[in-house]
Computed example of a mutant assay.
Amino acid sequence: MNISDDYRRGRHVVSRLHVHLVFVTKYRRGVFDSAMLDACERTLRDVCDDFGARLVEFNGEDDHVHLLVEYPPKVTVSALVNSLKGVSARMLRAEFTSQVNQASIRGHFWSPSYLAVSAGDAPIALLREYIEGQRRPAPTR
């Protein structure tokens, strides 16, 4: 499948599907710092690649993350979210064990709920600007 002219073109389909996702940490605990957000973004990009999707924009604050994902029509948003949350939770717990444990998040890293908003009518540039404007925690030394 080729991606060109802002449209994804396949043998039998032409599409341009975007979803704005928001994942919140369990109990809305402020866990993230800049390094954790960077690691989370790398992992989420890899998961998107595995689905044939593309992470267009990513940012977050200390207790939640925003993603703008362009995805193919064969992928269901719920399956993509399940994988994004599962893989990132395992990676973050393994790589940042002490920070996750200090936040007293027992069992799950992410809240079981999530926000998924179709980006069909909103200009993608406006969504990207909104996500870029999140108050990312400053890097720790």
Rank of each mutant, 00 (worst) to 15 (best):
M1T: 10
M1Y: 15
M1C: 15
N2K: 15
I3M: 13
I3A: 09
I3F: 08
I3W: 09
S4L: 06
D5K: 08
D6T: 10
Y7A: 04
H12P: 04
H12V: 05
V13T: 14
V13F: 12
V14I: 11
S15L: 09
S15W: 15
L17P: 04
H18G: 00
V19Q: 05
H20T: 15
L21F: 13
V22A: 12
V24R: 06
T25W: 06
T25D: 03
K26H: 14
K26P: 12
R28W: 14
R28G: 15
R29I: 12
G30E: 07
V31A: 03
F32Q: 00
F32C: 02
F32M: 00
D33P: 06
A35F: 05
A35P: 07
A35E: 06
M36V: 03
M36C: 12
D38V: 07
A39E: 08
C40P: 02
E41V: 04
L44P: 00
R45F: 05
R45L: 07
D46P: 10
C48Q: 09
C48K: 04
D50E: 15
D50I: 14
F51P: 01
G52K: 11
A53E: 00
R54W: 02
L55I: 15
L55G: 02
E57V: 11
F58Y: 06
F58Q: 04
N59Y: 15
E61D: 08
E61R: 04
E61M: 13
E61L: 08
E61S: 13
D62E: 07
H64Q: 11
V65M: 01
H66V: 04
L68Q: 01
V69W: 04
K74E: 14
V75L: 06
V75T: 13
T76D: 08
V77G: 07
V77D: 06
V77Q: 06
V77F: 12
S78G: 03
A79L: 09
L80H: 03
L80Y: 02
L80R: 03
L80W: 03
V81R: 02
V81C: 08
V81F: 02
N82W: 10
L84R: 08
G86W: 10
V87H: 05
R90H: 10
M91T: 11
L92K: 00
L92G: 01
F96C: 06
T97G: 07
T97Q: 03
T97V: 10
S98G: 03
S98Y: 01
Q99V: 01
Q99Y: 05
V100C: 13
V100N: 00
V100K: 01
N101G: 09
Q102A: 14
A103D: 07
A103G: 11
I105W: 10
G107N: 13
H108D: 04
F109N: 00
F109K: 03
W110Q: 00
W110M: 05
S111G: 10
P112Q: 05
P112M: 06
P112L: 05
S113L: 13
S113C: 07
S113P: 15
Y114W: 09
L115K: 04
A116T: 06
V117T: 09
S118P: 12
A119E: 11
D121G: 10
D121Q: 09
A122V: 12
A122Y: 11
P123H: 05
L127C: 08
L127F: 10
L127D: 08
R128S: 05
R128C: 11
E129F: 13
Y130C: 08
E132M: 07
E132W: 11
G133I: 10
R135C: 11
R136I: 04
R136E: 06
P137R: 01
A138I: 13
P139F: 13
T140Q: 12
T140L: 07
